[in-house]
Amino acid sequence: MYINRILLSAVLVVGALIAQVSVLARLQLPGAVPDLLLLVLLGLAMVYGHTAGAVTGFLAGLLADLAPPAEHAVGRYALVLCIIGYVAGLTKPESTQHRSATVPMLVVASAAVGSTLLYAGVGTLVGDTAAGQVGLLPLLFTATLYDLLLAPFVVPLIMWAARRTERGVITSDASGVGSMGRSDKGAYGWLSSGTGLQVGGSLFGKGRNGSTVRNARNGKAIRMGIQRGSLLDRSSRKGRTGKIKGVKRL
């Protein structure tokens, strides 16, 4: 059931990392580099939820830490993306998808700012002051701008692909419910075959003139029950009268 999720997430994360390292990092843009890996993570987290978002973010960040151009400590970006994926997954709706693009775009903007601040904060803890030398405000502005410009072309496609895997899970659940409904009907079918009772059906129906018409099987069963009841009543009455007559004879 979750194999489709794992395969899709792995393909998207690896593809985004390769595109970011080989293409986006070589554009020589001022300030930050467009974070395609972050956008892929956000698209997956907003569909799969916070747990999958945290796990995917940690693994994606770990791959980014191990990528050849990386010059920072291993696990630094994994921690950042794990937190970002968890928080972004909390915005997943309970039963339906996002009705507008406002919430995803706000998530992208918040994630761009949050990931930059977390990355700089963790770097300060481990003794990396490169972000302070470049300037934190220009990094925040350019990272948010680049991610917002790239998000409309990336995030909807990622969310659409993730929902395709979710539809497979829903249809399998729906088929399981349907089969359970059929098995329940077979298990309780004895109620409708000999006692005049139906499960989920009606005993009486309306005829053309508005009068109630009984079902044929149920009518026979009820008439048989009535006849049995009348016979038992008659036998009990005879027994009672016999006892009373015997008392009178004494």
Rank of each mutant, 00 (worst) to 15 (best):
I6A: 06
L12H: 09
G15A: 12
A16T: 02
L17Q: 07
A19K: 11
Q20T: 10
V23C: 08
V23M: 11
L24Y: 01
L27C: 15
Q28W: 09
L29C: 13
P30I: 14
A32F: 01
P34Y: 03
P34R: 01
L36N: 02
L36V: 10
L37I: 09
L37M: 11
V40F: 00
L44H: 05
V47L: 00
Y48T: 00
Y48S: 01
H50N: 06
A52G: 10
A52D: 07
A52R: 06
A54G: 06
L59D: 10
G61N: 08
L62C: 11
L66P: 08
P69D: 05
A70S: 06
A73D: 13
A78Q: 09
I83R: 10
I84C: 04
Y86T: 02
A88S: 12
E94I: 13
V108A: 01
V113Y: 09
V113A: 07
G114H: 13
S115V: 05
G123S: 02
G123M: 10
V126K: 05
T129R: 05
G132T: 03
Q133W: 00
V134T: 08
L140N: 02
L140Y: 07
T144S: 09
D147G: 12
P152S: 09
P152I: 06
F153Y: 10
P156L: 11
I158E: 03
A161N: 12
E166D: 12
R167G: 05
S175Y: 11
G178Q: 09
G178E: 06
M180S: 14
D184K: 04
K185G: 00
A187H: 10
Y188A: 03
S193H: 15
F204P: 00
F204S: 01
F204M: 01
K206N: 10
N215F: 06
N218R: 03
A221R: 12
G225L: 15
Q227L: 15
L232V: 08
L232G: 03
R240H: 06
K243P: 11
I244D: 12
I244L: 05
K245I: 02
K248I: 14
R249V: 08
